[in-house]
């Protein structure tokens, strides 16, 4: 099983209200152990998953937003956010949690994991992927 495939996890739903976002993150964390080429996409309401200052106290359910910040430690550092989805919701990169990783090929320099891309670029990323998980 030496073959490396390009895995794309597409996150399309808001973090709370349904369990898709949280259970998607669980797949990503488990999948990270398989040493595949992993990418995450956030589109539509999925962009809300990365918003700063999430507070679920009123909902009484688990706030899992801190888990996204650990993705860099799992070597999950290719995170693509669709610009059109941000724009449609009045969000900018400043509204999102900074996600970083340490680049082992560059003296462990801290680098941004997040890249904002157009829907056209996102479509190309989907096209390049071997396995596409839709959540």
């Amino acid at each position: 099983m030496s073959e490396t495939k390009q895995f794309m996890y597409v996150n399309r739903k808001a973090p709370y209200g349904t369990i898709y976002a949280w259970e998607s993150l669980e797949v990503v964390l488990i999948g990270a152990a398989f040493e595949q080429d992993v990418r995450l996409a956030f589109v539509d309401d999925g962009v809300y998953q990365l918003c700063k200052g999430q507070d679920t106290t009123g909902l009484g359910i688990k706030n899992f937003s801190a888990t996204y910040k650990a993705l860099g430690d799992y070597d999950v550092n290719k995170i693509y956010i669709e610009k059109e989805s941000l724009d449609a919701r009045g969000l900018t990169l400043d509204d999102l949690m900074p996600l970083v990783y340490e680049d082992e090929n560059d003296d462990w320099a801290e680098k941004d994991s997040i890249k904002v891309v157009s829907s056209q670029e996102m479509a190309e990323l989907f096209e390049q992927s071997d396995v596409l998980f839709n959540f």
Partner: peptide, 19 residues
Amino acid sequence: GLGQLIEAGIQSERLVVFG
């Protein structure tokens, strides 16, 4: 476990998701 899903993605030519 979820590893079975990842393995299915690796081993199969297509993973078809329904939902």
